[in-house]
Amino acid sequence: MRAFSYERVSSIEAAARAAATTDGAKFIAGGTNLLDLMKLEIETPTHLVDVNGLGLDSIEATPEGGLRIGALVRNTDLAADERVRRDYALLSRALLAGASGQLRNRATTAGNLLQRTRCPYFYDTNQPCNKRQPGSGCSALAGFSRQLAVVGVSDACIASHPSDMAVAMRALDAVVETVRADGTKRSIPIADLHRLPGDTPHVEHVLERGELITAVVLPKPAGGEQIYRKVRDRASYAFALVSVGAVVHPDGTGRVAVGGIAPKPWRDEAAEKELANGAKAVAAKLLAGARPTEQNAFKLTLVERALSAVLVEAKG
């Protein structure tokens, strides 16, 4: 881990300013992903801006009937919130399927959205990785890729996004609120937050330098049966091979977002129109253009079957 300077900030403006004006600055909140990567010198900030003193840790009702979730609300608290459990069960379920009790106690809402891939080559600094070191090549393409993405990938990168929470947020049409270094605010629909790798897999989202996530807003409850099905090798404390987050209404319509298969939470509104035609039809659309490796081609079948099980469960 490289040496870095450290400051605690107590206002959002100060945080954004500090991050924008100091070379190599990064925000730190829960730190559960950032410190992991700093120890391996995959992340090498020279200055850390500790935003834990900013508040941003409450969950409030919005005038539109939704919830505004502070960026620093810990995963445990978000999952345990009465309103989330009642009206956004999908989100609660997704959070509880992720990591461990200890990690959920630290990890924040914003940090969870921005966590980085678990591709083993990204984690090993001796190995070529276009995401870690642009231009060095992708070791995973011809290497160990069982966990990695099958859709949204490029020749440069097949890393998958590891978040469970983000899958639920995607299905629930969450909107990310930020403050930029110049103090201006903006709202980014979650669908637009993450970028696909293309030729620049090291650029993972649309946030600008110094731009701070302040909240994630959920629209009014979607209703329906809300199910999060995470498929993994181990029964707990493991990243998803595939996960399905679904909202299914009594009339058979609904929404589906899938995790573990793409560089971002994967959702396709056109696929959802096929819900009445069953899992096969939905999966065919969702996975159109998939480019699996020999090692992760099973995910195509797995998505379809997991979705099928979710639809059966939703019917009750």
Binding site: G24, A29, E43, T125, P134, L207, E208, R209
Partner: peptide
């Protein structure tokens, strides 16, 4: 809560490889 501006690009010539031998930096670097 990381910003892409902090992601750095480092020297790719470290990985310049020939068929039989390769020169790379040690762990981490």
């Amino acid at each position: 809560m990381q910003s892409p501006g902090a992601l750095e690009i480092s020297r790719r010539d470290l990985l310049a490889a020939s068929a039989a031998t390769v020169t790379v930096a040690s762990a981490h670097s």
